[in-house]
Design a protein around this nucleic acid. Structure first.
Length: 231
DNA sequence: CCCTGATTCGC
DNA sequence: GCGAATCAGG
Protein backbone atom coordinates (compact mmCIF):
# COMPACT_ATOMS: atom_id res chain seq x y z
CA UNK A 1 0.00 0.00 0.00
CA UNK A 2 1.38 3.36 -0.97
CA UNK A 3 1.88 6.29 1.31
CA UNK A 4 -0.56 8.73 -0.13
CA UNK A 5 -0.72 12.25 1.21
CA UNK A 6 -3.92 11.34 2.90
CA UNK A 7 -2.45 8.36 4.66
CA UNK A 8 0.60 10.34 5.66
CA UNK A 9 -1.68 12.90 7.20
CA UNK A 10 -3.44 10.25 9.18
CA UNK A 11 -0.14 8.85 10.27
CA UNK A 12 1.08 12.22 11.50
CA UNK A 13 -2.14 12.96 13.26
CA UNK A 14 -2.43 9.64 15.00
CA UNK A 15 1.22 9.54 15.87
CA UNK A 16 1.09 12.91 17.50
CA UNK A 17 -2.06 11.92 19.28
CA UNK A 18 -0.03 9.35 21.07
CA UNK A 19 -1.46 6.24 19.52
CA UNK A 20 0.93 3.34 19.34
CA UNK A 21 2.44 2.30 16.06
CA UNK A 22 0.38 -0.85 16.13
CA UNK A 23 -2.82 1.06 16.57
CA UNK A 24 -1.92 3.39 13.79
CA UNK A 25 -1.04 0.50 11.53
CA UNK A 26 -4.34 -1.08 12.40
CA UNK A 27 -6.18 2.08 11.71
CA UNK A 28 -4.57 2.78 8.41
CA UNK A 29 -4.72 -0.78 7.34
CA UNK A 30 -2.52 -2.41 4.80
CA UNK A 31 0.64 -1.56 6.63
CA UNK A 32 2.58 -3.13 9.40
CA UNK A 33 3.62 -1.63 12.66
CA UNK A 34 7.16 -1.49 11.35
CA UNK A 35 6.07 0.34 8.28
CA UNK A 36 4.41 2.94 10.43
CA UNK A 37 7.44 3.40 12.59
CA UNK A 38 9.74 3.51 9.65
CA UNK A 39 7.61 6.07 7.91
CA UNK A 40 7.23 8.12 11.04
CA UNK A 41 10.94 8.34 11.42
CA UNK A 42 11.47 9.18 7.81
CA UNK A 43 8.94 11.93 8.21
CA UNK A 44 10.92 13.22 11.08
CA UNK A 45 8.20 12.66 13.60
CA UNK A 46 9.68 12.86 17.00
CA UNK A 47 10.02 9.73 18.96
CA UNK A 48 7.75 9.21 21.82
CA UNK A 49 8.32 7.40 25.09
CA UNK A 50 10.07 4.34 23.87
CA UNK A 51 10.65 1.35 26.07
CA UNK A 52 14.18 1.18 24.79
CA UNK A 53 16.36 3.88 26.12
CA UNK A 54 19.51 5.05 24.48
CA UNK A 55 22.46 2.93 25.37
CA UNK A 56 24.31 4.26 28.29
CA UNK A 57 27.49 6.12 27.45
CA UNK A 58 29.45 3.38 29.10
CA UNK A 59 30.03 -0.32 28.77
CA UNK A 60 28.16 -1.20 25.65
CA UNK A 61 29.87 -4.57 25.86
CA UNK A 62 27.59 -7.36 24.78
CA UNK A 63 26.17 -7.29 21.33
CA UNK A 64 25.94 -10.60 19.61
CA UNK A 65 26.23 -10.47 15.87
CA UNK A 66 23.65 -12.75 14.32
CA UNK A 67 23.97 -14.38 10.94
CA UNK A 68 22.00 -12.01 8.79
CA UNK A 69 23.53 -8.73 7.81
CA UNK A 70 26.77 -7.38 9.05
CA UNK A 71 26.25 -5.28 12.13
CA UNK A 72 29.55 -3.72 13.11
CA UNK A 73 27.88 -0.44 13.85
CA UNK A 74 29.46 0.78 17.02
CA UNK A 75 28.33 4.35 16.66
CA UNK A 76 25.02 4.92 18.36
CA UNK A 77 25.68 8.62 18.55
CA UNK A 78 22.12 9.77 18.68
CA UNK A 79 21.86 13.39 17.73
CA UNK A 80 19.00 13.81 15.32
CA UNK A 81 18.02 17.42 15.21
CA UNK A 82 18.45 20.25 17.61
CA UNK A 83 17.01 19.90 21.09
CA UNK A 84 20.28 19.41 22.91
CA UNK A 85 18.75 18.82 26.26
CA UNK A 86 15.03 18.37 25.99
CA UNK A 87 13.74 17.42 29.37
CA UNK A 88 11.02 14.91 28.73
CA UNK A 89 8.12 17.09 29.65
CA UNK A 90 5.07 15.74 27.93
CA UNK A 91 2.23 18.17 27.78
CA UNK A 92 0.20 17.72 30.91
CA UNK A 93 -2.91 15.89 29.98
CA UNK A 94 -5.51 18.19 31.29
CA UNK A 95 -8.44 15.90 31.26
CA UNK A 96 -9.13 13.53 28.44
CA UNK A 97 -6.04 12.11 26.78
CA UNK A 98 -8.27 9.95 24.70
CA UNK A 99 -7.14 6.97 26.71
CA UNK A 100 -4.76 5.36 24.28
CA UNK A 101 -4.67 2.23 26.30
CA UNK A 102 -7.29 -0.18 25.12
CA UNK A 103 -7.58 -1.68 28.56
CA UNK A 104 -8.34 -4.97 27.01
CA UNK A 105 -9.63 -7.16 29.72
CA UNK A 106 -10.54 -10.63 28.85
CA UNK A 107 -13.95 -11.79 29.79
CA UNK A 108 -13.80 -13.05 33.27
CA UNK A 109 -15.44 -16.36 33.62
CA UNK A 110 -18.79 -15.91 35.20
CA UNK A 111 -18.34 -17.27 38.67
CA UNK A 112 -20.45 -20.31 39.07
CA UNK A 113 -22.91 -20.27 41.91
CA UNK A 114 -21.02 -23.13 43.45
CA UNK A 115 -21.89 -21.81 46.83
CA UNK A 116 -25.60 -21.82 46.34
CA UNK A 117 -26.86 -25.11 47.66
CA UNK A 118 -26.69 -28.10 45.46
CA UNK A 119 -29.37 -27.24 43.04
CA UNK A 120 -29.53 -29.37 39.94
CA UNK A 121 -26.82 -28.02 37.72
CA UNK A 122 -28.37 -26.41 34.73
CA UNK A 123 -26.96 -27.90 31.64
CA UNK A 124 -27.02 -25.16 29.14
CA UNK A 125 -24.78 -24.58 26.26
CA UNK A 126 -24.71 -22.49 23.19
CA UNK A 127 -23.55 -23.87 19.93
CA UNK A 128 -21.56 -22.00 17.40
CA UNK A 129 -23.70 -19.47 15.75
CA UNK A 130 -25.44 -18.55 18.91
CA UNK A 131 -27.95 -21.37 18.92
CA UNK A 132 -29.12 -22.03 22.42
CA UNK A 133 -28.95 -25.53 23.65
CA UNK A 134 -30.50 -26.39 26.92
CA UNK A 135 -32.02 -29.18 28.83
CA UNK A 136 -35.65 -30.01 28.25
CA UNK A 137 -38.02 -27.86 30.17
CA UNK A 138 -35.35 -25.39 31.01
CA UNK A 139 -36.07 -21.83 30.27
CA UNK A 140 -33.35 -19.32 30.67
CA UNK A 141 -32.56 -15.97 29.20
CA UNK A 142 -29.87 -16.09 26.57
CA UNK A 143 -26.34 -15.70 27.71
CA UNK A 144 -25.10 -12.24 26.84
CA UNK A 145 -22.43 -12.33 24.18
CA UNK A 146 -18.88 -11.73 25.19
CA UNK A 147 -17.65 -8.29 24.26
CA UNK A 148 -15.35 -8.36 21.31
CA UNK A 149 -11.79 -7.53 22.08
CA UNK A 150 -10.24 -5.08 19.71
CA UNK A 151 -7.66 -2.42 19.73
CA UNK A 152 -8.21 1.04 18.40
CA UNK A 153 -10.28 2.62 21.10
CA UNK A 154 -11.72 5.48 19.18
CA UNK A 155 -11.79 5.30 15.48
CA UNK A 156 -13.53 8.40 14.25
CA UNK A 157 -14.58 6.93 10.98
CA UNK A 158 -15.94 3.68 12.21
CA UNK A 159 -19.57 3.43 11.36
CA UNK A 160 -19.50 -0.20 12.17
CA UNK A 161 -18.50 -1.05 15.69
CA UNK A 162 -15.18 -2.79 15.91
CA UNK A 163 -16.23 -6.36 16.05
CA UNK A 164 -13.78 -9.15 15.55
CA UNK A 165 -14.14 -9.97 11.92
CA UNK A 166 -12.87 -12.81 9.83
CA UNK A 167 -9.73 -10.89 9.04
CA UNK A 168 -9.03 -10.34 12.69
CA UNK A 169 -8.77 -14.00 13.48
CA UNK A 170 -5.46 -15.46 14.47
CA UNK A 171 -4.14 -18.36 16.50
CA UNK A 172 -4.65 -16.76 19.82
CA UNK A 173 -8.03 -15.23 19.78
CA UNK A 174 -11.29 -17.05 20.16
CA UNK A 175 -12.91 -17.79 16.86
CA UNK A 176 -16.26 -18.65 18.30
CA UNK A 177 -18.83 -17.17 15.97
CA UNK A 178 -21.25 -14.63 17.36
CA UNK A 179 -24.40 -14.25 15.44
CA UNK A 180 -24.95 -15.76 12.06
CA UNK A 181 -22.82 -15.53 8.97
CA UNK A 182 -24.26 -13.11 6.52
CA UNK A 183 -25.87 -10.99 9.15
CA UNK A 184 -24.60 -7.46 9.35
CA UNK A 185 -23.12 -7.78 12.78
CA UNK A 186 -21.78 -11.26 12.49
CA UNK A 187 -18.40 -11.44 14.16
CA UNK A 188 -16.22 -13.63 16.30
CA UNK A 189 -15.72 -13.75 20.03
CA UNK A 190 -12.19 -12.37 19.89
CA UNK A 191 -11.24 -13.05 23.47
CA UNK A 192 -7.85 -14.61 24.13
CA UNK A 193 -7.97 -18.32 23.56
CA UNK A 194 -7.60 -21.08 26.03
CA UNK A 195 -4.05 -22.06 25.09
CA UNK A 196 -4.10 -25.05 22.81
CA UNK A 197 -7.67 -24.54 21.76
CA UNK A 198 -9.31 -22.48 19.08
CA UNK A 199 -11.68 -20.93 21.58
CA UNK A 200 -11.48 -18.94 24.75
CA UNK A 201 -12.00 -20.69 28.05
CA UNK A 202 -15.64 -19.83 28.17
CA UNK A 203 -16.37 -21.13 24.72
CA UNK A 204 -14.24 -24.21 25.20
CA UNK A 205 -16.62 -24.96 27.99
CA UNK A 206 -19.44 -24.90 25.51
CA UNK A 207 -17.66 -26.63 22.71
CA UNK A 208 -16.37 -29.49 24.76
CA UNK A 209 -19.18 -30.60 26.98
CA UNK A 210 -18.58 -33.16 29.68
CA UNK A 211 -20.54 -36.35 29.65
CA UNK A 212 -24.00 -35.81 31.03
CA UNK A 213 -25.77 -38.11 33.43
CA UNK A 214 -27.69 -40.95 31.92
CA UNK A 215 -31.22 -40.32 31.00
CA UNK A 216 -30.59 -36.70 30.34
CA UNK A 217 -31.56 -35.66 26.88
CA UNK A 218 -28.42 -34.60 25.13
CA UNK A 219 -28.37 -31.95 22.51
CA UNK A 220 -26.47 -32.81 19.37
CA UNK A 221 -22.70 -32.56 19.66
CA UNK A 222 -21.36 -29.11 19.08
CA UNK A 223 -19.96 -28.69 15.66
CA UNK A 224 -18.21 -25.58 14.59
CA UNK A 225 -19.27 -23.98 11.41
CA UNK A 226 -17.91 -25.78 8.46
CA UNK A 227 -18.18 -29.15 10.15
CA UNK A 228 -19.48 -32.15 8.32
CA UNK A 229 -23.15 -32.25 7.57
CA UNK A 230 -25.00 -34.12 10.25
CA UNK A 231 -27.81 -36.38 9.30
C1' DC B 1 5.00 -14.75 26.37
C1' DC B 2 3.01 -10.24 25.16
C1' DC B 3 3.82 -5.48 24.10
C1' DT B 4 6.52 -1.15 22.80
C1' DG B 5 9.64 1.98 19.64
C1' DA B 6 14.46 2.17 17.31
C1' DT B 7 17.65 0.77 13.97
C1' DT B 8 19.58 -1.53 10.20
C1' DC B 9 19.89 -2.73 5.59
C1' DG B 10 18.36 -5.30 1.33
C1' DC B 11 15.38 -4.21 -1.94
C1' DG C 1 11.72 5.42 0.04
C1' DC C 2 10.08 1.34 1.93
C1' DG C 3 9.52 -2.08 5.50
C1' DA C 4 10.97 -6.84 7.35
C1' DA C 5 14.15 -8.29 10.45
C1' DT C 6 16.20 -7.43 14.34
C1' DC C 7 17.21 -5.37 18.72
C1' DA C 8 16.16 -4.08 23.30
C1' DG C 9 13.39 -2.54 27.28
C1' DG C 10 8.90 -3.06 29.87
Amino acid sequence: MAWTDERIDQLKSLWEKGLTASQIADDLGGVSRNAVIGKAHRLGLKSRPSPVKAADAKAPAKKAAPAKAAPAKPAPARKPTAAPAPPPAPAPRAAEPAAPRPAASGVQSQPLPEDSKFSTPKIVSVGPGGFLRQGPGDQQPPIPPAPPRRRVPAKPSAEIADKTGLLDLNERICRWPMGHPGEPDFHFCGVDVNPGYPYCVEHCGRAYQAQLPRGTRRPPPPLPFGGPRVR
